[in-house]
Design a protein around this nucleic acid. Structure first.
Lengths: 196, 196
DNA sequence: TATTTATTATAACAACAGTTATATTAAATA
DNA sequence: TATTTAATATAACTGTTGTTATAATAAATA
């Protein structure tokens, strides 16, 4: 065996990572990576069969980074933190957010939003017993609360990402989401009142 | 003057319109239009300087169609109808919705979402005096209600468009939006109680 | 040191995009 | 009917993409 690799697989992915974070997936081409790497396009193809492999790699990295955002402590409430982290990610990693949720050429598959919902459910479930406010609710009411919160979070993330909601500090995001959560909670209370 | 035009400007735009509605903006190319039209690409360029003109034309048509959706009577409440129409449009015209709100190569401009918000405000304002429930609210509370409803509508439209929210009948959409509206109303009531 | 061989650079390929130069065509005008 | 001329068809040009054939290169091995 001769000639150790000059460009490691990680270097290739790192270069692509920097490009996608700054300019978005559309600007990640074999040539742009090579340029950023100071090489030809060959090292890329020596590490992966095609750019589809790279796309998967970047999707994974993006998901992991978003997961980091969602696991941070913004508010002391892990359920709320998932939503806050989601929106903060949409604000601070505009291109990655678009890559995960908007760049889909096809409308069909949308695993990532679904996964977002699932992690919502999971965290919600694990928090349930600790939160006296929530544990008093019926399963149906809890489901409604989660669903509405998910929809609201998604809408807020989209609008923050698009720059429609402007000077968007973490505290402001937290306020929006807390308000919405309270609103949906009040709604479920009202529904249960009515059904009695 | 010789040889009347075989392909009218409207025919060209109509062909592009059918293509974008079915397959999305990315599939609208000079050659695909020509193919659908049974012509060469020349008639297109005889009617417009470049495909940018066509894009503007299709944007206008899409906006008008969405506006139609929002002016329809789904619920008897014009304010609610704007939101319902928005989501129904996102469901029934998946590619046009993406064209208006998601296909943006750049994150910066997002006039269409803003225009959506403005029409929300306008309709809300014109309805204000008629709706006793709303007219009793403080301006600040009204603003909060509009903002939250807008965010929720946007999120719901996105998720319905992506197929995340599934067997999505008009009545279901209406239910979601009505519920959310009530929730945000209850929230503002609660806030005013607290501030007293 | 000469050979081997994986890695890389160069340069090309095909596919596709928008656009356009040129030739053809067909109807109105003379 | 012959001429004119705008509209269209054909085919190309330019530029960009992913990918790859070929050649150069450089380090480990013989």
């Amino acid at each position: 065996m001769k000639q150790p690799r000059v460009f490691a697989r990680e270097q290739v992915i790192d270069a692509a990572w920097e490009l996608i974070r700054e300019h978005g997936w559309k600007q990640v081409t074999a040539r742009s990576i090579a340029g950023h790497l100071g090489s030809s396009t060959m090292p890329i193809y020596s590490h992966m069969k095609s750019l589809d492999d790279l796309e998967k790699e970047l999707k994974d990295r993006s998901r992991k980074l978003m997961h980091d955002y969602q696991m941070r402590d913004y508010t002391g409430n892990p359920v709320l933190d998932i939503a806050v982290g989601y929106v903060v990610f949409a604000r601070d990693e505009k291109q990655l957010f678009r890559f995960l949720f908007l760049d889909r050429p096809d409308v069909r598959d949308s695993e990532d939003v679904l996964q977002m919902r699932d992690s919502f459910y999971e965290q919600f479930g694990s928090q349930e017993t600790e939160d006296e406010m929530i544990s008093g609710m019926s399963p149906k009411a809890q489901e409604g609360l989660i669903r509405n919160s998910h929809i609201f979070s998604h809408g807020l993330a989209m609008m923050v990402n698009a720059g429609i909601i402007h000077p968007c500090a973490n505290e402001m995001i937290r306020g929006y989401l807390e308000d919405a959560g309270e609103a949906f909670y009040l709604l479920e209370l009202r529904k249960e009142e009515k059904s009695e």
